[in-house]
């Protein structure tokens, strides 16, 4: 078994298994914790509307915060959108999802993917530099932050090298790329990357609770 076979075979299988196992474990573990009923007289009965409202509107900063958070949010947006484009727009990735789910959609031209990857990598580097240099972020950051950054950065970087056939043979690069994705999948449920699922739950929770009170959301 060569490296690529290992990557495409057992590594991916087990990474995907750990991925779903960890995600369901964490989500179920949170959601099944106790919830106390709220007997207070609701100001608005339609709390679900608040959940939706907050899920949607918290996607951009409120006017009052814009000046202070614009840069961080912009860079965040750039690499998030970049990742979505790369993960779901690149033909070989679509094939990956097709093999898993049977779903297919049109791919983007490779030139677009390459440019996006370059921009995404640049944004990720900016994010890291900011995390290392901003006093607040440096204080808050722990292993999870840096490791999650690494496992996000690595697939994009190795993916670009693979497409460019740069640095090693293609099959080795492809194997490393897939292994980096496997690492991402394995780490995903246990670190902050879970925010991609939790963001909806967390925002929805606050949105519903606050809408009930008529509080600001």
């Amino acid at each position: 078994m060569d490296l690529l076979q290992f990557a495409r075979g057992p590594a991916l299988t087990w990474a995907a298994t750990v991925f779903v196992f960890g995600i369901t474990w964490r989500l179920v573990g949170i959601l099944l914790l106790q919830r106390s009923p709220d007997f207070s007289e609701a100001r608005n009965a339609t709390s679900w509307l608040g959940a939706i409202k907050l899920i949607v509107t918290r996607s951009w900063p409120r006017r009052e915060f814009r000046q202070r958070t614009l840069f961080a949010q912009s860079v965040g947006y750039i690499f998030h959108i970049g990742l979505v484009i790369i993960v779901f727009g690149f033909a070989p990735h679509i094939l990956f999802f097709k093999a898993l789910t049977g779903l297919v959609w049109p791919n983007l031209p490779s030139a677009v993917i390459n440019l996006t990857s370059a921009i995404t990598l640049a944004a990720l580097i900016v994010v890291l530099v900011r995390r290392l240099s901003h006093p607040v972020l440096r204080l808050l950051s722990n292993f999870d932050d840096y490791f999650s950054w690494l496992v996000t950065f690595a697939p994009v970087a190795t993916g670009m090298l693979t497409v460019a056939h740069f640095g090693a043979r293609y099959e080795t690069l492809l194997a490393i790329h897939i292994l980096s994705v496997a690492l991402l999948l394995v780490w995903f449920p246990f670190g902050k990357l879970m925010h991609s699922a939790l963001v909806f739950i967390s925002r929805g929770t606050t949105g519903a609770l606050f809408e009930r009170k008529g509080a600001s959301i």
């Binding site: 076979q5 495409r8 075979g9 991916l12 298994t17």
Partner: peptide
């Protein structure tokens, strides 16, 4: 395709 997992998982 090369970019897909080898096994049916």
């Amino acid at each position: 395709p090369l970019s897909t997992p080898l096994a049916d998982n």
